[in-house]
Amino acid sequence: MSKEHQKYLKKRKIIDILIRIIQIIIVLIIIAIWQYAADKNYINTFISSSPKNILKTIISLYKNKTLFSHIWITLYEVIISFTIGEIIGITTAAFLWRFNFIYKILDPYLTILNSMPKVSLGPIIIILAGASTKSIIIMALFISVIITTINTHQAFKETDQNKIRLMQSFKATKSQIFFKLILPSNYNNLINTAKVNIGLVFIGVTMGEFLVSKAGIGYLIMYGSQVFDLNLVMTGIILLITLAALMHYIITFIEKNIEFKT
């Protein structure tokens, strides 16, 4: 490696680190201002809480041994819903890609279902499936599966026609075309759809926990608002943000480190 190239790499690395540091500083500044404003009574801590209060709430949740159980319950529901959502979404998309005629028939229904506010189905789901984890997962699936299907199918459909013709010139079967071309060529699209999916699943699970009101971070937020403990509400929101960020990073990590192998 030449000296010049080393210099170039070093410069890039320094810029990357600098960006990270600034990002962290911004968060710290926000927290500091928030705390400062709370200490000086510029803001009403009863409504907007404060970093210290949030920390105290987390510690007390930890002490009465409910912190991790709530986090775990939400995480569990998110992971299950996400996984089932991906499986159903991709399978349905593959099916619709294979049978375009059926897709054309179903297209308007999918569009309508997609634009419907799915949260409105909540009460019905709870009546049908009971006030349980099952309802929460169903809720999350309703919110995420349709858009996952639509986006994935769209990506499948836009696969380069010439590459499909190439496969056909080798007399490839539909399933060979799917597994050797459609799936691997849409790897990036699948990752992007997964990112959208994870966001929607979080919305679904939180809504579900609001409605079912038994456990999980959504429940903490709901409970907090009912007893006017806004510290608890803020804590719940912060926990959700942290979890969502974590899941996002996991997917990005997978994207960067796992190449598609056929």
Partner: peptide
């Protein structure tokens, strides 16, 4: 040329063989 970006040169060359 329709080469598959996610396959290396060798894998691209044997695509037809694999399909058949």
């Amino acid at each position: 040329d329709n080469l598959f970006d996610w396959l290396n040169v060798y894998k691209n060359c044997i695509l037809g063989l694999e399909i058949k």
